[in-house]
Design a protein around this nucleic acid. Sequence first.
RNA 1: AGACCCAUGGUGUAAUUGGCAACACUCCAGAUUUUGGUUCUGUCAUUCAAGGUUCGAGUCCUUGUGGGUCUACCA
Length: 557
Amino acid sequence: MTERIPEADNFIEEFIVEDLKNGKHGGRVHTRFPPEPNGYLHIGHAKAIVINFEIGKKYGGKTNLRMDDTNPSTEETHFVTNIENDLRWLGYEWEGETLYASDYFGELYEFALRLIDKGLAYVDDSTVEEIAQQKGDIDRPGTNSPFRDRSITENRDLFERMKAGEFPDGSKVLRAKIDMAHPNLLLRDPVLYRIKHEAHHRTGDAWCIYPLYDFAHGQSDSIEGITHSLCSLEFRHHRDLYNWLIEALEIFPSRQIEFARMNVDYLITSKRKLKKLVEEGIVAGWDDPRMGTLAGMRRKGYPPLALRNFCLRTGVTKRDNQQEYDLLEHNVREVLNDTADRYMAVLDPVKLVLTNYPADQVEMLTAERQPETEGSPALTEEALPFGKELWVEREDYQKEPQNRKYFRLAPGKDVRLKSAYIIHVSGHEEDADGVVTQINATYYPESRSGNDTSGVSAKGTIHWVAVREAIDLEVREYDKLFTDPTPMDHEDRDFLEFINPSSLQILAAKGEPALAKAQPGDTFQFLRKGYYTADPDGTPGKPVFNLTVGLKSGWKG
RNA sequence: AGACCCAUGGUGUAAUUGGCAACACUCCAGAUUUUGGUUCUGUCAUUCAAGGUUCGAGUCCUUGUGGGUCUACCA
């Protein structure tokens, strides 16, 4: 077998390549994504998912999905299903079944016993406050617990009785016996097990003692034979404990490597804050398109490929980073430009009447739907009704344009109606307030799209919808949820002070009839406006569309 | 303040591990365009500071500066 090791693209892969070259673990690479099933996945998780799964894929390895469910108080099964859905949607399939740290409770308990037997763990009767007190300070060594020197026999007995349910919550914990003066506070006799007489979402009442993160995560990695355990920077200090436990327990040496989590402008990734947005009714739910959750971005219409590209292209390093919103949106547009079919919808309609067009005539034109891709022009398909009365965009009309380079509707202008005719604008009617109520124009009968013999040239092209055949659309125009790119970074102000009051505008729009077939999740480009995705709230009679991302506009009028 | 981590255009990431600092996004300008979209071309802009090693330093060393993380019976 001649194995070629792929070239490393970042420092984590450099470590992996190094391990591979040294023949470590027999050339095996095994990563994992270990969410806690107590909330919804967000863009930050997406980054971790992409890193873990892509590395697994790249180096011929495997990636597990493991629920880090060691705290019965906060975890629920329905989150598990959600996480699985999000992962599949993102485009990843994990190795085998979904795994659970709680499946290892038995082994973990044995590990604890092993530690006790080695004199490396003890049962402590101190209270939470006392333990915090003993911990010392950042520049003050801690002090030993009065229970630190219990005999192995006594520790074993006490721990077994903890498990048997003889003691109430909080009365005892199991602690590792390391060094109360260690510069890394995590090694000052960390708590390994706590008593919680609570039912667990999977193990039910089988246990009343539960391991803490530091005594569950690394051990789960070991049990699963994870070779590279990738996590975010804030776990750096845990690595010392992670390694200490591997040595003490003499178990499979998984290697923890930390990378910087991804931050994105205008998006928050704090579970607690996300929850607050939902609970205070600031957003419609966890899947509100303004949320940085995967569910929200899915509903907004972000293609999974765009998210993967975004995560991949922003790289993997150890420095704090703040990604620009523009880059996220660029990745979304890039994918959608290649994949979204094109339709016309008028978001802010005003009536346009073609005075020289027969009143009862309806013409079926053809429109280009598929986007033009390299080498193949846009395909022409699907009928598009045209008539005397049309809806056009209010902002596409100006009574007296100031800019000489304005090419859209205005008195005296010739403008192309996309896929239809060129028209000559004669003028408009307005109400007492000067608001335009109708635009009048004539059309050039020989200028029909596809066989234009009129000789008329129009600089501008606008979208439109035939009044009689138009269907009603509810269009939800989403904007950024916050007015500040980093609402969490203000020590003196709460992030809720930066809520964008106009992050959602609901529009009564007019769409071409073909749009009636839209299924929830379908994304289209509304010509000249943006990409819109059909929302589950829509009904057959009245589709609802969410703004996924707007088109860029080079117009600086 | 102790330990640990980090520092390259506006943002993010590269630089064959000591050999002409580049790519993407953004901005701006132009070409093409029946979407003021896409595509194409071009412009502006970068190594935290000081010292040292070296023919040569973004890269190695020292000191400093700035930022981050850590004192939950959460993960």
